Amino acid sequence: MRAVVVTSFGGPEVVAVVETAVPEPAARQVRIKVSGAALNPVDAGVRAGVFGGAGKALGLGWDVAGTVDATGVATGWTVGDEVVALSYGTAKPFGTHAEYVIVDADAVAKAPASVDAVHAATIPLNALTAAQALDLLALEPGQSLLVSGAAGAVGGYAVQLAAHRGISVTGLARAADEEFVRSLGADRFVSGAVAAGSVDAVLDAAVLGESALEWVRDGGTYVGVIPQAHPASVRGVRTDAVEVSADGARLAELVALVDAGVLTARVAETYALDEAAKAHARLAEGGLRGRLVLVP
């Protein structure tokens, strides 16, 4: 099979497509024939060496949508099932940017019925990150939340999920994105200055750090999206950062929300697997609304 890897760190030019044996699932694992796999900033981080791992080939790709192609024992899945899954890890030999991928059975959920596999491939990492970040915030209906990067992939899901829970959401994004962010369910929109101490909590999907912390009231909550990189607590504000975990049951709940029209899966562009380096270059340019998706 073909798979996307990096064997040295750098820019998009280090991304390579290699030929390797089709992997075999062990007990409680499934093999998925990939139909679509999103490209995320974490993949660019692996490529650039942010997470280490020098001296060995590192596979890229965390999100997958496709068809169960083989199973180990005790999986609960059947060959032919249409699924989505999260393949967690920054130091794996092969990721979801491949023709086939092995994942743990409990990381898998049934694919949404309302969108195609390319759109479904944008759900696992970003929607799980948003949902698990909201869990850390532990807000009650009626409390106020500011989501930075509200037009982005994680931020957009966070706005929709929070609004669905009855939380009062302010979306922070570029002025040109106001109509879109409000369409996601934001009660308020800002593109510039935010009053200090004006919200109960911040979900900092734009990675603004200490400046975003200032917007939280005394005793409120701040959650970032880069593990262990959140700012130190001040004024009694609890600070934390989400580290996404694979959770097939939770992913199934999010898929159901996609099918119910609560969550919107967004695709910016698609690339063939052999064009992975071009996709990385496009990601580096920025300005995307939705994810890039590789299609084997």
Rank of each mutant, 00 (worst) to 15 (best):
D69H: 10
D187H: 09
E13P: 00
S198H: 08
V147G: 04
L254I: 14
G80S: 12
K56Y: 09
V108F: 07
E19M: 00
R217C: 12
A54Y: 09
E19I: 00
V34A: 06
A201N: 14
R47M: 14
T129G: 14
V6F: 07
D218T: 14
H230G: 04
L273I: 06
A158K: 05
A109D: 04
L263E: 02
K110D: 00
K56W: 05
E285F: 02
L139C: 13
D116A: 04
L184Y: 01
P25W: 06
L145E: 09
R235F: 10
D200S: 12
A27M: 12
K278V: 04
A186C: 07
A98W: 01
V115P: 05
V108S: 03
S35V: 03
A277I: 05
A109R: 07
A130I: 14
A196R: 09
D200N: 15
S198I: 13
Q160P: 00
P227S: 06
S144W: 08
A163H: 12
V15E: 00
L161K: 04
L257Y: 04
E253C: 02
R188P: 00
S198E: 11
Q29P: 05
D240A: 15
V108K: 03
L161W: 03
G49A: 13
R2K: 15
P25Q: 10
V73M: 06
G149S: 06
S211N: 03
A133I: 12
L292P: 11
R188A: 15
A279H: 01
V83E: 05
E285I: 09
V190Y: 01
E275L: 01
